[in-house]
Design a binder for these strands. Structure first.
Lengths: 146, 146
DNA sequence: ATCGATGCAAACCTTTTGCATGCAG
DNA sequence: CTGCATGCAAAAGGTTTGCATCGAT
């Protein structure tokens, strides 16, 4: 039924990592919440609220592990924290970050993929990944300001 | 003669900040070196080598200030450090980051600027700035690997 | 002479690590 | 049972801050 979870389990076991209660809970937290990106602190809060009080060292260690295994993707929003989002099924996407309310809107676009090829040829640089962020003022905030 | 420096001085004074020896030295370090981005530690090293031994608190405080005043631009390359580059004259540009040797190649392209307009319309989001990074393998590293 | 800027050291804050204990396979 | 995973507390590591002193205006 839950394909993501099956995939998660599979990746762990294939790489000889154990499926522990803590790893399960961390993964489920990413699946359950609307909010798409968490840092370690936010994740610890969520887990605590669900009476899954997991040590912070465990959370940090597993966020790092999950990222290495491709289960999570690490994001960076220019603050002090490392953020992570689920990476199992999501389409490649990017972020619009509101400078006023800090909300984050996801978008994706194919034009960019073509652009990538151009860069590869021009600079003889083999692109493996990219990060694209637009900073600005979102719809809601521009209404409030006016 | 030195338009950048004049501009720098102007910005400080306009905003009622004092032109100190330390601020001058920090600014000059950004102007003098080929390497385009520094973090605080690298900057402190450079200053020390030039017998301009400035306290690290001063460097951190001024990097932050210069960024607020638009003299520097803060960059983020997904490591523990904050990087800064001069922002007074440079054309808008982006970065190719080699995953192997960590070298950073700058590029700029106009296609992207058009793409931006499309995003603005589609998402009703007023773009103020953007950050675009491509991660991959640079020319030199792909030679060595083969 | 005044008040912002500096330098030192201590504090901060997120993340990492060492080590004894626990538990998945 | 074995050895990887966890949890605690301590350490690390970059950055920030308090406070006395310095120096730009």
């Amino acid at each position: 039924m839950d394909k993501n979870f099956e995939k998660f389990k599979e990746i762990l076991l294939e790489n000889n990592y154990r499926l522990t209660k803590q790893r399960e809970e961390i993964f489920k937290a990413f699946q359950q919440y609307d909010k798409k990106h968490f840092n370690a602190e936010q994740l610890l809060d969520i887990l605590k609220k669900e009476d899954e009080d997991i040590g912070s060292a465990t959370v940090y260690r597993n966020l790092e592990l999950f990222q290495r295994l491709g289960i999570l993707k690490q994001l960076d929003f220019n603050d002090a924290f490392k953020y992570y989002e689920l990476n199992l099924i999501k389409k490649h996407h990017h972020h619009l970050i509101c400078l006023n309310c800090n909300s984050i809107i996801e978008f994706n676009d194919e034009v960019l993929e073509n652009f990538e090829k151009k860069i590869e040829d021009e600079y003889d640089f083999e692109i493996k990944d990219h990060t694209i962020k637009f900073y600005g003022i979102c719809k809601n905030c521009s209404k409030e300001e006016s």
